[in-house]
Design a protein around this nucleic acid. Structure first.
Lengths: 304, 304
DNA sequence: GTGAAAGCGCTAACAT
DNA sequence: ATGTTAGCGCTTTCAC
């Protein structure tokens, strides 16, 4: 039951650790007689050898760890934790399948501490809903680390960003509400630029936009806007809104890939290919330093 | 911008790496003159030194990594990914606050590969919805690793399990449906024993129990059971069910800590203290080898 | 073909 | 009070 190392295998097989390493890692350009190879492999299997990735990381200068960092506000509603569930799950799955391990960490939006990136020597980082105030501070520290920013507008050509094409989504929504008067409900994103962008494309003035603080206030806002039609960004927020507002008058922009959580009578606008796939692909290219010049800095997921 | 190590600091400060280590880690029983201490600290700060945790892990034989492993079926509905979102978020938060880093990994229920536990030398592991068929296989490999099993009935007194008290929840639900005929809708848990237990406590026979395969079939089952009352395990499943069934006749057992996602007209049964807190506390005790004998092997979260 | 040895960045026992 | 040293488990160069 005790941990077994290459040294143990080497001793049992009467070879050096170097040889064991060559065999176990299938190193090219090292001709090993089949006999030895099989003997070592056999012993490794019997001993149930599992490599220690921390040790390997140290010498390889690659950890195989990728971070998913989620910016969070202490006071955010419970549904905020649902919004990235699907995305994170899919992303984790893609990463795991390509041999990475995923480190998940929430950042305190008011004081994000990205120490973990450097401490754990993450090979890549996905940052969700970045707080741009602190982003620049942070980002300078690890320019060398591949970084993909999700759902965040960042005025820096250095970084790659993936997000839904809210502009098109809103265009579509506006067609659907037309010609009724309407309002907009959305989260208080930590990334204020994104909020700004969405507001702008809604063509509404501040009075008709509510950025959700909590469920009670949301209910009040909806109460005040009876008779209008409402555009809600996000299906979970939409679910909550539907508790206080006629579903038939709601158009929900589904940016969490869970449109089916909504009551059928709500009109839905969904996005194309999952964000996770795009995010993953960008990261792969970043890590492999591949085709970077061909890659757009902003990758927008189109509406369906 | 290049990585800075203790060696760099040592050289700049004209001391040995050992001294730097002592100072940076505030090692007891090592008297360091304030002058030296401050000089080293100053230099470390200026260079923006960040310790390499892989290296530290190697010598300390503790990685500071805790795993959250989620057993998943390839064909499961999208809402399954929501069910643990809140739990995982809270758990991550607790762990991060106590200095652990979280590794998130999904396991393929039909062929769970827990390599990661040993490869990454995880200090502890939360396993969600364990597949008992393969559990024993797996578990033998890492008896030494603190393991907390979530939402899984495992007939092995060796492991600690945390889950909602479904028995009480069902008691309560049965009171609410009484005297109407009723049916039960629940997930196809990967942990079949849990399903079995819930079924048993529902007092129903197989015909009146539907374990969800997909949304279409669920809709058919609900259609067939019009007129009865329905008990649904899980609020997200409840949301889906409410698309096809009168909400007033639904009682939902909310095991995802998101009862507020449901339409108000649905009757809800919720649980007390969050599961995450209990799970976390058990893990802490396990890791510290603390009061283990006082600890129940099954920790049930009571209904509200 | 195989292995000795250096070294990744860090800690800790032991000298001095 | 500080430094020397021996690793932790692994990879990889270079010599044999």
């Amino acid at each position: 039951m005790k941990k077994v190392t290459m040294k143990n295998i080497a001793e049992m097989a009467n070879v050096s650790v170097a040889t064991v390493s060559y065999i176990l890692n299938n190193v090219k350009n090292q001709s090993i007689p089949t006999e030895t190879r099989e003997r070592v492999l056999e012993i490794a299997k019997n001993l149930n050898y599992i490599p220690n990735l921390a040790a390997r990381s140290l010498v390889k200068q690659k950890t195989g760890l990728v971070g998913i960092l989620v910016n969070k506000d202490v006071h955010q509603g419970f549904w905020r934790n649902l919004q990235y569930a699907q995305f994170i799950t899919e992303l984790e799955s893609l990463l795991t399948r390509s041999g990475y391990h995923v480190v998940l960490s929430s950042l305190d939006a008011s004081n994000p501490n990205p120490q973990i990136i450097l401490e754990r020597k993450l090979d890549g980082v996905f940052l969700i809903d970045a707080n741009e105030d602190t982003f620049y501070h942070i980002s300078r520290q690890f320019i060398a680390v591949p970084l993909v920013v999700i759902d965040s507008v960042i005025d820096d050509p250095l970084f790659f960003k993936v997000m839904p094409d809210f502009e098109s989504a809103l265009e579509k929504a506006k067609v659907l509400v037309h010609p009724h008067p309407y309002f907009l409900v959305m989260e208080q994103f930590n990334n204020k630029q994104l909020a700004k962008k969405i507001k702008k494309h809604s063509n509404l003035n501040e009075d008709d936009i509510y950025m959700v603080k909590n469920e009670r206030e949301l209910a009040l806002f909806l109460e005040k806007n009876k008779g209008k039609k409402g555009i809600v960004v996000n299906e979970f927020l939409g679910s909550i809104a539907a508790k206080y507002f006629s579903p038939d008058d709601l158009i929900v922009i589904c940016n969490s890939e869970c449109p089916d959580i909504l009551t059928p009578s709500i009109q839905k606008i969904a996005f194309k290919s999952p964000k996770s796939t795009s995010a993953f692909e960008v990261m792969q290219k970043l890590i492999q330093n591949n085709d970077l010049d061909k890659l757009e800095k902003y990758i927008l997921i189109g509406v369906n």
